[in-house]
Each structure stands twice: as C-alpha cells, then as structure tokens.
Design a binder for these strands. Structure first.
Length: 316
DNA sequence: TTCATTTGACCCTC
DNA sequence: GAGGGTCAAATGAA
C-alpha cells in the first residue's frame, strides 16, 4: 500500500516547479524584489518537499535530529502561503523578511512600513494636518482601506473555515435585514496576518452566509496551530428571533479546538491560495481524496459544499 | 485578571 | 451627506 505522504510529496514537488514558472509570467520587472522573495520561498518549500520525500522513503535513517514529516509538511504549506501572499499583494508592496508589507513609491524608494502594531498609515495631506493630540487621544476610524487587496466570496451554510478569527465590528447595512459582521485574523498582531473577512446572512436564505474574504492568511496557524477564537452565537446579536433557531446553534458552533480536524488540508489550501491556482491544483487532482492521510498528520480529504467565487478584477 | 465581543464614534469613499 | 469600514472604550465571560 503506497504511503499517502509519499504520494503527496511526489505530487507537490512538480507543483512547486509549475508555480515557479507561473511566477515568471506573472511578475513584471517592477516587482523583482517580490519575485525573488517568492522564488526563495518556493525553493525553501521545494527543499522541504524533497526532504519529506527522502524522510518518507527512508524512515529508518531518520535520527530525530532533522525536522519531522509534519514539520516539513507544515513548512511546505507555509512556503506556498507566503508565496501566494506576496504574489497577490499590490504591485508596490513588498513583503519583507518577517512577512510585513513594505510600501514603495513610484521611484522605488521606501515610503513606509507597516508593523504588526501599527498597521494604519496616514497618507493624505488633510490627515497630516489633523491635530496630533486628537489622533493620539482617539484614533477611531483612522484607517486606510485596503482597496488593493484581493477579495473573494464564499456562500455557505457555515462560517467555519478552520481559521481563528476575531470579531472587531458589526454594522447594520442599508436595505439589509441582517447586520454585517467584521472579522480579522486572530494572528493579526502577533504574526501580522492581514486577512479579514466580512460575514452576512443572506436575506433570502437566512441559513446561508455570504462571506467576503479580503487578503490571504500569512500566519502560521493554518495547519496545526490551536484555534484560539472561533465564532460565537452572537453573529447577528442585534437580530432577535434569529439566533435562537435550531439551525443557527448547529451551524455557528462555539468551538475551541486544539487542532483543526476535518477538511483542514484542502480548506486551508483553498483559503490561502489564489483561487485560480487552487483551480489549477484542483485540475491536477491534488485535492482529491487520494491524499487522505492518517489523522496523525491532520490531513484529510475534502469536498466542496460551498459556492466559491473569486473577484479576479483585483488582479487585473 | 485576561481576553473576546459589543457598540458608539470617527473617518473614508462615493 | 450617506453608507460602510475600522477603532477602541466599555462590557461581559471564563
């Protein structure tokens, strides 16, 4: 019986090469820095995949001094995640060594850097004119919309997606029966992950959720980090008579699990990859249950029960 | 005491 | 000016 991880390692290696080739086409001259970084990430991933393959083919040789199969697998996935993140960030953004986004002006000079603790920036002259006292006293609303971030939507019966989110706001939306909830990645401050999502129940189908994802996860908790925060049953807290329904309690579970248990691998891939690339991988049968691994590796088969849409206009 | 959620306020975009 | 996105103080839960 073939080892499923070996199969995975065999499949993922050519995928890294394919992705690297795509990079050559997708990256223009002006984003060479990003390209270099992504190539470096992919090379690291490739190296980990090779080590993983060797490790699985020669399990006896492993003396414990090298990374485990799980760690290698995690590194491969992280390599992909970081690569995709850089690939899909705006043309004037470069992700630095620690995963922070650094903005460059038209002349190529660095104009600012966003740190994990100071993700907002003031860019307008008017903003600069504002009183410093006022800003330090109350900075509510002083943000910069991420118009360049890639977005895609997901319509599903559940808002669960195996990522840890923290709710930071909720708004009543005009002409909408249900409020819109705003979530950011719970790793925003410790890992600088920029992923956010907006969740809103569909008026015509109250049991369905329209989730808009903005930005990819760059955090490292996609495969085996604990789920620190998930969803409460207060998604629509302002809407009485809705939260008490049976289906609601079923599809918005209060989960505090140590490790994602089901559909982790493919959901994480789907969540973190550019959907066009995800589509390519899907076509290449990487997503199929053929890579069902044992629970020891936390990798499972997956299937899509949701409608998945990607706004490609952001990449044009 | 710590941390997540709620909610009103603030600011940006259209 | 309206609507939407985000912040942060207040509040609640563990």
């Amino acid at each position: 019986m073939p080892n499923p991880i070996t199969n995975f390692a065999k499949k993922i290696t050519p995928q890294i090469s394919t992705l690297s080739e795509k990079m050559s086409i997708l990256f223009p001259q002006c984003v060479l820095s990003n390209r270099k970084r992504v190539l470096r990430e992919l090379l690291q991933g490739h190296e980990c995949a090779t080590k993983l393959k060797f490790l699985l083919q020669n399990p006896i040789i492993s003396d414990g001094s090298t990374l485990s199969a799980e760690e290698l697998l995690s590194n491969v996935e992280r390599s992909f995640t970081h690569s995709i993140s850089v690939l899909t960030s705006s043309d004037t953004e470069v992700v630095d060594e620690v995963g922070q986004i650094v903005n460059y002006g038209e002349n190529g000079s660095q104009v600012g850097a966003n740190s994990c603790n100071d993700l907002r920036s003031e860019d307008s002259t008017e903003s600069k004119k504002r009183s410093l006292t006022t800003r330090t006293k109350d900075r509510r609303g002083s943000y910069k919309r991420r118009r360049t971030s890639e977005t895609w939507t997901n319509i599903s019966e559940t808002i669960e997606d195996n990522h840890a989110w923290r709710k930071y706001g909720q708004k009543e939306i005009l002409n909408s029966k249900f409020p819109r909830s705003y979530f950011r990645c719970s790793r925003k401050y410790d890992q600088g992950c920029q992923a956010i999502k907006q969740v809103q129940r569909i008026e015509e189908k109250p049991f369905m959720y329209h989730t808009t994802y903005i930005g990819f996860h760059t955090c490292k908790d996609t495969l085996n980090a604990p789920q620190m925060v998930t969803y409460s049953d207060t998604l629509d807290s302002k809407v009485p008579n809705e939260k008490d329904t049976t289906f609601c309690s079923q599809i918005i579970p209060i989960i505090k699990q140590e490790y994602p248990k089901e559909d982790t691998f493919n959901n994480d891939l789907k969540d973190n990859l550019d959907p066009t690339l995800w589509s390519d991988l899907k076509d290449l049968e990487l997503y199929k249950p053929a890579i069902v691994l044992s629970k020891d590796f936390g990798v499972f088969h997956s299937h899509f029960s949701t409608d998945f849409h990607f706004d490609e206009s952001h990449l044009l």
